[in-house]
């Protein structure tokens, strides 16, 4: 999957990606992963707290992708399952805050070379770009109080 093949994106989404060190890219050393923008290797996908996901969105991310180990292959027994449950719950939470649930995704797979990471990120960026940018809602009362909006 390539961004170029589908033409320029309507806008360039910022994606934060958490990758499990045990399942993703360990053969290439961490440098290859860290050279990718906004990719954060973690000890286990189960280490990614719901507040990390919220923090990414609060910091301006347009989407969050978590890469964990396949079913039954978590180095720490069930961290990937914990991450999946968190994602399922957080998709409901972010929707309430006006962020489409598709902006949060989890992929449970194994990729020792780490070669799938970049295409996965690009694929998700492309999906997010179709959703459009997240617009800032009023930060201060003065900004929110426009008085011009048609409320009917």
């Amino acid at each position: 999957m390539s961004v170029k093949a589908t033409g320029p994106l309507p806008f360039s989404p910022k994606l934060v990606c958490f990758t499990c060190r045990f399942g993703w890219g360990y053969l290439n050393g961490s440098k290859a992963i860290e050279s990718l923008h906004n990719v954060i290797p973690v000890t286990c996908s189960g280490k990614v707290d719901a507040s990390h996901i919220m923090e990414a969105f609060k910091s301006g991310a347009d989407g969050v992708l978590i890469l964990g180990c396949p079913d039954g292959e978590c180095h720490f027994q069930n961290g990937n399952y914990q991450a999946r449950k968190r994602v399922l719950l957080m998709r409901k939470v972010i929707e309430a805050f006006g962020i489409e649930h598709d902006r949060l995704a989890i992929e449970l797979d194994m990729d020792p070379e780490g070669s799938k990471i970049e295409p996965l990120i690009e694929g998700m960026r492309e999906r997010i770009s179709r959703l459009g940018p997240l617009s800032p809602k009023g930060v201060t009362a003065n900004q929110a109080c426009t008085g011009k909006e048609n409320l009917r």
Partner: peptide, 26 residues
């Protein structure tokens, strides 16, 4: 199990929703 939870955001943020500043679709 997660789909069976009624109003999860309202439950978790019953008193604190306004303290969360997020961008979002209006």
């Amino acid at each position: 199990v997660t789909d069976g939870i009624a109003d999860l955001p309202g439950t978790c943020y019953r008193f604190t929703a306004a303290s969360i500043s997020l961008k979002g679709k209006s």
